[in-house]
Design a binder for these strands. Structure first.
Lengths: 185, 185
DNA sequence: TATTGTTATACTCTATAACTATA
DNA sequence: TATAGTTATAGAGTATAACAATA
């Protein structure tokens, strides 16, 4: 995930750009040719994608200032919550839903930056334990207060009820999605 | 965007996996240390990311069966809506919010697959016009009926009102996000 | 001078497959 | 045999910078 548009200068803003709207109008119009096309449904999916792009573009850009990708940030978050015990690379792979080979690379780069150590387990010498370092913890302590403050601030136009509704509806979409896919086979 | 988890066999399902829930519980619990941490807000953002991941993982996997990445699909969609006139690469760059260099690569691969042609403009010979081919149109005609049917099907547990609410709330989040970021400077 | 597209280069994230060391 | 991690390789997607052709 997704170092998109970190420094996009050449093109206009995603949100206010009428071309984005124009494209949606075209989709809405042309879609009528297809019997199962249902605009409120398609619009909902487009909105999920667009909201995600806006959010992650911004947060990825901010993380990049601290030398972190979003994946690297997620690993640090997991490690900082492991109460000093660290975490097996295997478990990181499961938690982050990426391959073990991938975790190797991510941990490599975090070790190079000095934010993580990698030590062989005593109990099972096949296993590597990744632990966050003091420098990694310090980085999070520097980053997280701003991170949470920023989250609250950018969502300040929404009421608590709207936030809860949005969470609820996204969860419903997710559950419906997974259920329908499973019943497909 | 985002060929994630196309063939993930090693790990459990994203949705039903209690480890994901566990991680959220930890975030919720540990977050209390930070004064501006507000769980309903953070949860909302996590839900946007998770919903997006589920959706795009699935759709990317389906597109891959047709030899298309999501970016490639988006380009074909834009070109198919340009009424035979095609589209300047420059405009594709703007519409898709990626660099011109990027568009070159994406068009290269679509030309190689035979879904797009690239011709020099008569009026302005700096400009390249990308046009969708018969093969590209045929591919979309094969793909879109299923695509829209699938969208409707996986969202079938949601009422029209819920879909419209979800769209409305995502839009509100997006607008709030952009407005607050702009007022930052 | 400014713009369009290309080339070159590099980085991140992802995947699979083959390998090793260990269990 | 099975598992944890690594290495090697691949490919998508992104970026910047320098360049050529054209306006």
């Amino acid at each position: 995930m997704k170092n998109k548009k970190i420094n996009s200068i050449e093109h206009a803003d995603v949100m206010t750009d009428p071309r984005r709207k124009y494209y949606w109008d075209r989709v809405k119009y042309e879609g009528r040719r297809y019997p199962k096309f249902h605009w409120p449904t398609v619009e909902m999916f487009l909105n999920v994608v667009l909201a995600y792009d806006i959010l992650t573009t911004h947060f990825a850009r901010r993380m990049a200032k601290y030398g972190l990708s979003i994946s690297a940030f997620n690993i640090l978050m997991i490690l900082s919550r492991s109460e000093g015990k660290g975490c097996k690379q295997r478990d990181l792979s499961s938690l982050m839903l990426v391959s073990r080979a991938n975790v190797t690379g991510l941990i490599d780069s975090l070790v190079r930056q000095g934010f993580v150590t990698r030590t062989a387990s005593q109990k099972d010498r096949r296993v590597c334990i990744a632990k966050i370092t003091k420098a990694g913890d310090d980085l999070l302590e520097q980053l997280l207060p701003w991170h949470y403050e920023e989250m609250s601030r950018v969502a300040a136009d929404m009421s608590l009820q709207e936030k809860e509704n949005l969470s609820r509806l996204l969860t419903r979409l997710r559950i419906s999605f997974v259920k329908r896919l499973e019943s497909e086979e």
